[in-house]
Design a protein around this nucleic acid. Structure first.
Lengths: 219, 219
DNA sequence: CATGCTCAAGCGTGATCACAAATTCCGCAT
DNA sequence: ATGCGGAATTTGTGATCACGCTTGAGCATG
C-alpha cells in the first residue's frame, strides 16, 4: 500500500491520504454523485481510495462535521435524507447568503468575469440538454462560485459551501426526478444585472434563482 | 486506560471517547478559555482526556473542519489568530444571521422566554462586574442562543454556532484587553423589542449588539 | 403468510506501533 | 550578545489489530 511513484523533490509535496479521501468524497457529495441515504463504511472507503481505515475515518469525520454526511446513533455514516422542512430552511439560508455575496462581488465584477460566467452557463445549458444531473449541478455551482469568489468574503463563501454540501445528494435526487429540460431562467437576469451594475436587480435575480430550484419539491 | 466505572445497563449508553473530547474542546474554544495561537497536540489532548491519540485526532479533525481550530501546513493544530479583515467578516456574518434568527423567534417568544433571558442577562452583568471573561462570553452566548432556539431553524443556528466558534479565542483576547465594566447596552433594547413585538426594532438592536462588540478592535 | 429469533458477517471504536518530517534546543563561532 | 548548524526530541500520519455492538438474512414458530 506504499506509494511507489518516484518524485522529483521539487514537485508538490503530495497531500496526506486523509485529505485526498476527503476531497474525493466531498466532490462526490457536492456534485450529487451519491443518492440520499447511501451508506458509507470505513473499510469500503478505504478500499475505494487504496488506504487503510485511519485516513478514511478522518475524512468521514470531517465531512460529517460539515453536514455533508449524517451519522446514525450507532456511528454508521450515510448521505443525509433531508426532510422537507430542512430543505426549505437550507434554501432560505442560500437566499440569505447568495444575494449578499453577489452584491459584494458586483463592484469588482469586470467584463472578463461576466464572460467567463457566460461560458459556464452555456456548459450548464448543454448539461441540461444532455440530461446529465451531475454535470448540471457541477456547472450550476461553478456559475455561482465564480461570481462569489469576487466578493472577497472567504468565511461567508465557506459557510455557503457547507450548505451546498448538505444539499448535494438531495439536489441530485430532485433533478433526476423532474428531469428539467429548460435552462435556469434567472441566470440571464443575473448576467444582465451584473452588466448593468444594478444591485437591487442582482439580489432579486439570485433570490429567485435559489428559491425556484428547490421550491419544486414541495408538491 | 479501560473504563472501570460499572454501569447499570439502563443508564445512558455512554458517548464515545472521541465525542467527549470533541465536546470538551469545543466548549473551551467557544467560551474563550484558550488564547489565540495556542498549540494543541494529539498526545497532549490524549493525556488531558485520558485517551489515546486516535479519539484525540478525530476530535481535532472535527473542530478544524468547523473552523474552530486552524491547521498549519505541517498538520499542526492551533487556535486561530484571526486577521482584522477576518474578524470584520465574521462580525458581518453575525449581523446577517442573528437579526434573521431573532425575527423568526419573535412570534414564538412568550413571556417565560423573555424572563429567562432577563435572568441570563443579569448573570452576564455579574460576570462583567467580576471581570470574568469566560463567564461573560458564556452568558452572552447563552442569552443569544436562548432566543434563537425559538426560531426553529436548526441549520441556521448551526451555521451561527460555527461562527461563534471561530470567534471564541479572539473574543477572549478582545474582552480581556479592553476590560469592559459596563453591561452590553443593546441587551435591554433586545428585551424591550421582544416584549413590544417590534420586529424592526428587534433586528436593529441585534445588529447593533453584534456589531458594537467586535468593532472595538479596529483601533 | 406474517412474525419473532438466532447467529454469523460486518461494522465502528480505540490502542499501539513504526516512520518521516518538523520543531526545538544547545553549543559553537562570530 | 548574536546568529547558525546539527543533533535530539516531539510531532502528525497511516497501518494494523482486538473488541463489542449492530444488522440483516435465514429459519422456525405462530
Amino acid at each position: 500500500m506504499t506509494e511507489s511513484a518516484p518524485r522529483h523533490s521539487t514537485t508538490t509535496p503530495e497531500p496526506p491520504a486523509h485529505d485526498r479521501v476527503y476531497r474525493g468524497l466531498r466532490q462526490q457529495v457536492m456534485h450529487g454523485e451519491l443518492t440520499p441515504g447511501q451508506a458509507l463504511t470505513l473499510r469500503g472507503i478505504g478500499r475505494q481510495f487504496g488506504v487503510s481505515m485511519t485516513p478514511a475515518r478522518e475524512a468521514l469525520r470531517r465531512l460529517t462535521a460539515e453536514g455533508a454526511l449524517s451519522l446514525s446513533a450507532s456511528g454508521r455514516v450515510t448521505t443525509p435524507e433531508l426532510s422537507n422542512d430542512r430543505i426549505e430552511e437550507l434554501a432560505q439560508i442560500r437566499a440569505l447568503l447568495e444575494p449578499e455575496l453577489a452584491s459584494r462581488a458586483l463592484r469588482r465584477a469586470h467584463l472578463a468575469l461576466i464572460d467567463r460566467m457566460e461560458i459556464i452557463n452555456e456548459a450548464n445549458a448543454r448539461a441540461i440538454h444532455r440530461q446529465d444531473p451531475v454535470d448540471y449541478i457541477r456547472t450550476n455551482l461553478e456559475f455561482h462560485r465564480t461570481l462569489y469568489l469576487r466578493a472577497q468574503s472567504p468565511a461567508m463563501l465557506g459557510l455557503l459551501e457547507t450548505v451546498w454540501l448538505q444539499l448535494g445528494p438531495t439536489m441530485r435526487a430532485l433533478y433526476t426526478r423532474l428531469r428539467r429540460t429548460t435552462a435556469p431562467p434567472h441566470h440571464r437576469q443575473i448576467l444582465e444585472a451584473l452588466r448593468a451594475g444594478d444591485d437591487a436587480a442582482l439580489r432579486l435575480a439570485l433570490r429567485s434563482d435559489v428559491t425556484q430550484g428547490l421550491r419544486h419539491l414541495q408538491g
